[in-house]
Design a protein around this nucleic acid. Structure first.
Lengths: 374, 374
DNA sequence: CTGAAAGCGCTTACAG
DNA sequence: CTGAAAGCGCTTACAG
């Protein structure tokens, strides 16, 4: 305590101060902290005791990094505001995997606050770019970023090893993701097999402009997020093969992955005569929003409306979810990404399976229908 | 792209290289990146262009930190394994607040992987200590650590500003927490008012040894986690005032905040003749475990068993929770902690309110009972 | 608006 | 096992 007080009053002790006080060289103090085998145990003890007495907590991290070129940390860049990321169960599953791998690698994790929506009032340029520039890390993981994100460009400019997870897929950048198209295809095939002909799609964001609503063909074609684009392709391929015109299936885009948005977008559609009997949702969150909308419209799930989600994150407790969904290995993506960063030389592209899990939110359509509702 | 390749092959460009190539001084390049007002716009543009051409992404963060003494990051130390932390809704709410504040402060967030249970196989000493030593940060937030955690000691040794959230409460260390005792008291009073006389308490961990089970009076007295100790004190004070002998109320300690543990610990108790009619749970997770245990025992909630949780995190979606609980402002704690770090000089102790929220998991006891079950 | 100089605190071969 | 020396890359008054 006394030492700490001295600390804050006087100048902070350095390696040199400890060396002087202990009567040894610079090197010896450094070794006492970083290379115990380079000096005798009693001497080491003496040095460490002297250090403690001077309030010296160990080598200055910045000086050490400058000298060694290593930081002992990796940077994690998110597509969303950091606060939002922590509320998305998908991201949390991924973070768990990353965190686990970090522990194994004895690496700290630097979370980089970025913002998808460019802040016009921001003099420092696009959000996250400065943060990436300043990040004292040995590499980056890009998690679910848009192809045109300024953060992607600034990470690439750093010239450090990096891995993209989910998106973007860029030539020359190691990648970890899942079979989005296949997973989506199986979800649609499942509903088609139950006789459904009238669909609506709840889509994750296709662009970074925060837009909600029905996505036009142009918007879909210009999507800068490849994951929703791939899932959409999978849904549509299956629908077309099943004899349903994909162009007639509305795509409701939700700028944020939350139940409320899905609920609000879908509800009006459920009041129409030609209402869909089946919902393809690109996340479990969106799917739960659809379930809520159904209830609000006086419809039952799966009696009046079948819903298939994506992610398999809805049931976290002892209770398992009732949602039919596409399972993906969230934590595994995090583990793999860090492994690719830590041990380069392995495969540069890992595409993990996405498996359909049938539960209680999907069922055979009640009344036979044609695609045009007749 | 070509530049990037050169980058990885040749030595990485420095400020000096850029200065040489642009025909300006060291200083000017530095200013171009950090102080735009110190040079003309055209010159700045020229410098930046040259930098880009050389694959120079900006000043080396370590060198900059060494020079300025600032890192632009704060360290967050958790009591649990990092992977577990990301699965605890309480921690996530807190992280959201921290993340939000970080964005406002333009600060990155370094997550420090620590482990509560000392790993015997760990040659580097207690987990987290080295990570704290190596952390290139301007300050620390300690989140819910045990009083005797080695991480607390190593953070204190760093001599950097730090704030403890929830626990530990240490003299001289700024603190953010809630009125744990008061919140717990109100939870118990609520159940007493409903006529309950037979209780069981589901407790969060009291020590760092990973022990589950009935906590002896000795263990409670020796608790190194002050939050559960305070809540226990609150429960017991209310029980005693309500004429229930606190010593007769079993305290079931759960080493991890999860439903499964609570379920497994409580279930045997629910099969006894003297089974409790009311559960005081120190978290919503534990409370949900109690609800699951009730179901498994063929009891209804709140018909046969009343359950009161803590945290108010159980209902995350559109659906609100049915749990009677004690609400605490998770995100606000995070925001306040960062604010205290960023703007020292304000109050050093912030104790936020913890308010009882009555919902459907608690009800009047069905048959009148005395404390001894007669 | 520009440039020369000093020094932030450390690690690492290397010689003894 | 110990110590003297060089240099990692930058920022910041300061003088012009």
């Amino acid at each position: 305590m006394t030492d700490e007080n001295q600390d804050t009053l006087s100048k902070r002790a350095t390696l040199r101060d400890v060396a002087k006080a202990a009567g040894v060289s610079h090197t010896t103090v450094s070794n006492a902290f970083a290379r115990p085998d380079q000096l005798s145990a009693p001497l080491r003890e003496r040095v460490l005791t002297t250090a403690r007495a001077l309030g010296y907590a160990g080598p200055n991290p910045a000086a050490r990094s400058l000298r060694t070129g290593r930081h002992g940390a990796i940077g994690l860049a998110f597509s969303e505001d950091l606060p939002y990321a922590f509320s998305d169960p998908t991201a949390i599953g991924f973070l768990q995997g990353v965190a686990e791998a970090c522990r194994g690698l004895r690496t700290n994790l630097l979370l980089i606050a970025t913002r998808t929506l460019a802040a016009a009032d921001d003099p420092a340029g696009p959000d996250g770019v400065q943060a990436v520039r300043d990040a004292a890390v040995d590499g980056f993981v890009l998690y679910s970023l848009a192809r045109d994100s300024p953060v992607v460009a600034s990470v690439s400019a750093r010239g450090l090893p990096h891995v993209a997870v989910d998106q973007p897929r860029l030539p020359g950048v190691p990648y970890v993701g899942i079979d989005d198209e296949g997973g989506a295809r199986r979800a649609a095939e499942h509903l088609l097999a139950f006789g459904h002909r009238r669909f609506a799609i709840l889509s994750l964001k296709l662009g970074s402009d925060g837009r909600d609503g029905v996505a036009s063909p142009g918007r879909v074609a210009a999507a800068t997020y490849s994951v929703p684009a791939s899932r959409l392709a999978g849904y549509r391929a299956a629908l077309a093969r099943g004899g349903v015109d994909p162009a007639a299936v509305p795509v409701l885009e939700c700028a944020l992955n939350d139940e409320r948005r899905a609920h609000d977008q879908l509800l009006p559609l459920l009041g129409t005569k030609q209402r869909p009997t089946a919902i393809l949702a690109m996340s479990d969150r969106l799917a739960l929003g659809a379930v809520a909308a159904a209830r609000a419209a006086g419809l039952t799930v799966p009696g009046d409306l079948s819903v298939v989600g994506f992610d398999d994150v809805a049931g976290d407790g002892l209770e398992s979810s009732f949602l039919t969904t596409v399972r993906q290995p969230h934590a595994e993506k995090g583990r793999l990404a860090l492994q690719m960063l830590a041990a380069p030389g392995g495969p540069q592209q890992r595409v993990l399976p996405a498996e359909l899990v049938v539960r209680a939110s999907s069922a055979r359509v009640t009344a036979p229908q044609s695609a045009d509702g007749t």
